[in-house]
């Protein structure tokens, strides 16, 4: 993933990915998260909150390779589109088959990091400055030992150039997996409240 490796194009087709069935299943699991499980222990909640603080700092400071290592191989990372619909509308409001802002596997994230590492992305040079705040963390046990359903809220502030800024505020639902003393992100649903993205792009990770 480093800049030095960029001259030899990595074969992204060998990177961990999910087929469509697996992505649909992962989306369904994230949509079903309603905080119904037993609350995680205070110790586990503290571990998870510390993990989120570290994750946010790695992103803010562009330690993308280290952030990438926090992602599980079966990651599904999803920011669906939000439509304005009447309450009486009986279509499912979010579906894995719809257009989305992010609909990613770990291999897809690797491609994004490869783009940034190319040093050919003029819109990130000079760099954008990010501050990523995570709060409202609630963690619940799931049917699987070591896996936690975690809800949180975020503010992703960014500023570049002089007056160019955006505050991207939203909610996350994560499937976190504790593996030994590590925590991995296995699923992430990013619920972003804007139906029209009120800025020019989503050049950021959530």
């Amino acid at each position: 993933m480093s800049g030095a490796a960029a001259s030899a194009k990595p074969d992204y087709s060998t990177y961990p990915t999910l087929d469509r069935k697996a992505r649909r299943a992962a989306a369904a699991a994230l949509l079903a998260m309603e905080g119904g499980g037993a609350p995680a222990s205070a110790a586990d909640l503290a571990r998870i909150e510390a993990f989120y603080r570290m994750e946010a700092r790695l992103l803010d400071e562009e330690f993308y390779d280290r952030w990438y290592d926090l992602l599980a191989d079966d990651l599904f990372y999803w920011m669906p589109l939000r439509e304005n619909r009447f309450r009486r509308d009986n279509r499912p409001s979010l579906s894995a088959d719809n257009m989305a802002m992010f609909d990613e596997t770990k291999a897809d994230i690797a491609v994004r990091l490869g783009r940034l590492a190319s040093n050919l992305v003029w819109t990130e040079d000079p760099p954008t400055r990010h501050v990523y705040l995570i709060s409202n963390v609630e963690a619940f046990e799931t049917g699987t030992t070591g896996e936690y359903e975690v809800h949180s809220a975020f503010v992703q502030y960014r500023n570049r150039s002089e007056h160019d800024e955006a505050q991207l505020v939203g909610r996350r639902r994560d499937l976190l997996r504790m593996v030994g003393d590590r925590i991995e992100v296995a699923g992430r649903l990013i619920l972003f409240p804007q139906s029209v993205l009120l800025t020019k792009n989503l050049s950021a990770f959530f």
């Binding site: 669906p80 029209v196 993205l197 800025t199």
Partner: peptide
């Protein structure tokens, strides 16, 4: 058109 509505964003 593929389902899910329009992807919308604002540019100055």
């Amino acid at each position: 058109f593929l389902p899910g509505g329009a992807t919308r964003s604002v540019m100055n």
